[in-house]
Write a protein that binds this DNA or RNA. Structure first.
Lengths: 348, 348
DNA sequence: CGAACTTTATGAAGCGTTTCATTCCGATGC
DNA sequence: GCATCGGAATGAAACGCTTCATAAAGTTCG
C-alpha cells in the first residue's frame, strides 16, 4: 500500500502539506485562498489542484487565531419554537451573508442558564459579533451581559443605558393599529385580553389601545388580564367574556395570536359571540398558524425579518467601526386584516 | 491615567496576562481551567482572582487549534420554520449538553447552496461532529456530503451505502397508523391526499395506508396526488373531493397537517362534508398548529425530539470511538387522536 | 545590455492555547 | 541531618494559519 495522499502527520492535510505537494511556499497557498489576484494563474491552478487532490479544508480555528477574529456571527435567540425568533434569525442571516459572514444560532429554549452559556460560548469562540434576542421577561431583564468586548446588538429589548445597540418594536403603535382597525369597522365596546401585565410588551400594547380608544367618543375599553399568552389563557378568558353575556363586547384585542385563537375557538361556538359577526377578534405577532386557522386571524405583524436585518446592519457598522455610537432603532409593526374581523369579504 | 488592567498588548487579556498577574507559569493557568485538581487550592484561588479581575475569557480558537478539535457540534437543519426540525435540534442539544458539547445551528432555509455552505462552514471550524437534517427532496438526495472526515449523522434520510450513521422514521408505519385508526372507527371509503409522490416520505406513507386498507375487507382507497404539502394544496384537493359528491368518502388521510387543515377549512363548510361527522380527517407531523386549529387535527406525530436525541447519541459514539460501525436507527411515529376524527368526545 | 522598477514567491515570526518532560520544593523516613 | 520521594509548578514546543519584510524573477526602457 502506498502512503495516503494525505497529511504527512496522518491527520487532515494542512497548508504545509498542500504547499509541499504543489511545490510552493506555504505563504503562496495562503494567498491562493485569500488574495488570489496576487498569484500567477499558473501557480494558482497548481495549488488549487493540490488542494482538491488532498481534500484540504482550511482550519478556521487556526485562521481566526492568526487573524484575531472569525467570520462567524453568533445569534442567541430566546425560543426557536417561536416563529418570531426564526424570522429574526433569518432576517439577520440574509444581511450577514451579504457581508461574507456566517450566522450560527444557539437556542436558549427560554432558559436563563442556557442563554448565559450561549453568550459565553460565542464570546469564547471569538465570533465577529453577537446578535442577542432575549425574551422580554424579568429573566432577560436582569441578565448581566458578559459580552463586554465582542460587538453585540440587542433585539426586541432596549438596553438600560444604551450599553448596546438595539432594535425594538413600537408596541404602543401595534396596540393603536389593532384598536383603530376595530374602531374603523364600527366596533365600540372593546376588550383587551392579555397578560401578565408586568410584561413590557403586553403593557405597552395595551397603552396603545387605550390611547386610540380614548380618542374615540363613545368607545369603551375593558381589560382582562391573563396569566400568560398561550391558547389556554385565551380559552379561559373566553369564558369570562361569555359570563358577561352577549352584546357586552363587540371586539376583543388579544395580546397574542394564541390567545386570539383560543378565544375564537370558544366564542365562535356560542350564540351571540360569533366571530366576527358578534365579536371581532385581533391577535398579535402573525405567527404562522394565525393565517392557517379555520378563521384566519387579523393580527398585528411583528416585523421579525426586518428586525433581524436591522440588527445585522447595526452589528456590521459596529464591527467595521467600533467607534460607532450605540443607537436603538424602533420599527413599526403593521396590521394584517383577515376574516376574524372582516368576515367573509376575503373568501371566494 | 494608570494602565488598563488588561492585556499588555492592548487587546483582550490572554493566559499569559493572567499568568503574569497571578505570578504563576502559563501552564498553571491552563491547569486551573482544565485540571483544577492538579493545582494547590491557594494557587488556584489566586489565578481565579486574576482571571476575574482581568476579565479573561479563554480563546476557543486557540484551544481547538492546540487540541485538534472543538467541543462544538454543528447542526445543519433544512428548515427552521418547520417545527419538526426545531424539535430535532432541541432533542439533539439536550443530549449534547449532557456530554459537555455545545450545539450550534445553521438553517439551510430550504436552499441547497446554503446547505452545502453550512456543511463546509462546520467542516472548516473543526467541530467535533455534525448532525445533518436535510429535506427529503431530490435536492438533498443528490447532495455530495463533503464531510468526509468529521463524524456526521444523517437525520430523516438514509445514506446510500451506509456512508453515515442515521436516524429515520418508519413512514410505512405512520401511514398504517392513520389508516388503522380510521378503520377502527368504522370508516371504509378512504382517500389519501398528498404529493408529489416522488417524495419518499409521501410515497411510503401511502404504501403503509395501502397495506392497512387492503387487509380490511370492504375498505377502499383512492389517491389524490397534490403538487405539494401546503395549505393551498389541501384546499384544492378539498374541491376535488367535493366534486365527487357527498358520501363518496368517509375519511381522508392527508400527508401533512397543512393539507389536513386546508381540507378541513373547505370541507367543513359544505353540507355532507362535515368534519368529522361526514368525513374524518387525519394529518401528519403534529406541527404546532395541528392542535391549535379550531378543529384540532388527529395526526401522526413525528418523534422529532427523539430523533434528535438518537442522532446525538449516535454521534457521540462515533466521536468517542471512530471505529464504531455505521448504523441506521428506525423510529416509529405515533398517532395523536383529536377532534378531526373523534368528534366531540374530547370537549368540555 | 543593464539599470530601475514591478510583480511574484518566500519563509520566519506570531497568534493563544495545550501538553508534557523537566525542575522545584516540601514532607517523610531513617 | 540527609537522602528520597511525590506532588506542584514550570516553560518550551507544537497546533495551522496569516502576515510581511525580503528575495527572486520578470519587465520596461534608455
Amino acid at each position: 500500500m502506498a502512503a495516503q495522499p494525505r497529511s504527512s502527520s496522518g491527520g487532515r492535510p494542512s497548508m504545509a502539506d498542500v504547499a509541499a505537494h504543489a511545490q510552493v511556499a506555504i505563504g503562496t497557498v495562503s494567498n491562493v485562498l485569500n488574495n488570489p489576484e496576487k498569484v500567477t494563474e499558473k501557480t494558482r491552478r497548481r495549488v488549487q489542484a493540490s488542494i482538491a487532490e488532498l481534500g484540504f479544508v482550511r482550519n478556521d480555528a487556526a485562521r481566526s487565531l492568526a487573524v484575531g477574529t472569525s467570520n462567524a456571527v453568533g445569534l442567541v435567540v430566546a425560543d426557536l419554537g417561536n416563529s418570531f425568533f426564526v424570522d429574526i434569525a433569518r432576517g439577520a442571516e440574509s444581511v450577514l451573508r451579504r457581508h461574507g459572514l456566517n450566522g450560527m444560532i444557539t437556542d436558549s429554549d427560554i432558559d436563563r442558564d442556557k442563554e448565559v452559556r450561549n453568550l459565553e460560548l460565542f464570546e469564547a469562540s471569538r465570533v465577529a459579533g453577537i446578535i442577542f434576542a432575549p425574551l422580554d421577561t424579568p429573566l432577560a431583564r436582569s441578565a448581566t451581559l458578559p459580552a463586554a468586548t465582542t460587538p453585540l446588538v440587542l433585539v426586541n429589548y432596549e438596553s438600560p443605558h444604551l450599553a448596546y445597540a438595539g432594535v425594538i418594536v413600537d408596541e404602543h403603535h401595534g396596540g393603536e393599529l389593532a384598536a383603530r382597525h376595530l374602531l374603523a369597522l364600527g366596533r365600540r365596546r372593546i376588550a383587551f385580553v392579555g397578560g401578565p401585565l408586568f410584561l413590557t410588551a403586553v403593557r405597552e400594547r395595551r397603552e396603545g389601545v387605550i390611547r386610540a380608544v380614548s380618542e374615540t367618543p363613545g368607545a369603551t375599553l375593558d381589560t382582562i388580564e391573563t396569566g400568560g399568552l398561550d391558547l389556554q389563557h385565551g380559552r379561559q378568558a373566553a369564558h369570562e367574556l361569555i359570563a358577561q353575556g352577549p352584546g357586552r363586547f363587540d371586539a376583543v384585542i388579544a395580546a397574542s395570536d394564541l390567545i386570539a385563537i383560543g378565544l375564537i375557538q370558544i366564542l365562535d361556538e356560542m350564540p351571540g359571540f360569533r366571530v366576527p359577526q358578534d365579536v371581532a377578534v385581533t391577535g398579535y405577532d402573525d405567527n404562522h398558524f394565525a393565517s392557517e386557522s379555520a378563521i384566519p386571524v387579523t393580527t398585528v405583524a411583528q416585523p421579525g425579518h426586518e428586525m433581524g436585518r436591522t440588527a445585522a446592519e447595526l452589528l456590521m457598522q459596529r464591527i467595521n467601526d467600533p467607534q460607532t455610537p450605540n443607537r436603538t432603532v424602533v420599527l413599526r409593526p403593521h396590521l394584517i386584516a383577515r376574516r376574524s374581523t372582516l368576515g367573509d369579504v376575503w373568501r371566494h
